[in-house]
Design a protein around this nucleic acid. Structure first.
Lengths: 128, 128
DNA sequence: CTCCTGTTTCGATGGATGTCTAATCAGTGG
DNA sequence: CCACTGATTAGACATCCATCGAAACAGGAG
């Protein structure tokens, strides 16, 4: 597959302000992502790519914080499975958690969702 | 260099039913997604959850349309692998394609990205 | 300390996924 | 017709992943 591409779509890596561990912030349609950028951002989408995790995320996001006990009750899967999915979301940087006594509470890290939203070109598109 | 002679000859569009239901549009932070909604939307995120596919998506989105030949050139993986990933994006309803003579061209279905953007944008904005 | 509950970790397993090569389909041109 | 190129499909294979039950960890109550 070695041929000279016309580079209709070969956009040069735009110099971006590095420093953000999470997604870069150029809208997807503005320019092509570099391999590095794609490798960085894809895991975030992947983390949201499971129905259970996506719903967990929405439940956590729709309130200030959510107790694992309540989250677990809302699904048909076992406790360990919920714990596993929460760990995936945590390691993706989408949520954070804290133990308070017996219970563990999760909340959304806004920066992450914001980055993805910007990437998808949602800047201002959100309507109530 | 120009390996894409602007083909004027247009064959019939590859009208294949990409029966992918697109995302509904409830902002993530506004309320918790139902199981059905999560099952509907998650595959879209999943489709973007692979670095190759995410970069393919960005390359297609950053220009009006993209030829498979150019897309293939931009990656280290084989042609069939690119074709496979494009199929995943197609079946997710994120892109559509058309054969024009020898080459096949892909473009973004804006509605899909818009839905995801709204979903995330509203969440990020509201939570921030 | 012991028991109980909530949460996470461990190990195993069936199914999904990304990748490849080889083969096939689609079009152009001799 | 046949040869050639571009793109997809088919089949195979190694790896990853969602899920479970059992066990371990964390904290409160008797």
């Amino acid at each position: 597959m070695s041929k000279q591409p016309v580079s209709v779509l070969t956009s040069r890596p735009d110099e971006r302000p590095s420093g953000a561990p999470l997604a870069c912030c150029a809208p997807l349609a503005a320019r092509a992502l570099s391999t590095e950028e794609a490798v960085t951002v894809a895991p975030l989408f992947k983390a949201l790519g499971d129905p259970v995790r996506l719903r967990l995320m929405s439940m956590i996001a729709s309130s200030a914080e959510a107790c694992v006990c309540d989250l677990t009750d809302a699904f048909d899967v076992s406790g360990p499975t919920i714990s596993h999915h929460l760990k995936v979301l945590r390691e993706a940087g989408l949520v954070d958690c804290e133990r308070r006594g017996t219970w563990v509470y999760y909340w959304v890290r806004p920066q992450a969702l914001e980055s993805l939203g910007t990437l998808l070109g949602a800047a201002g598109g959100a309507a109530g």
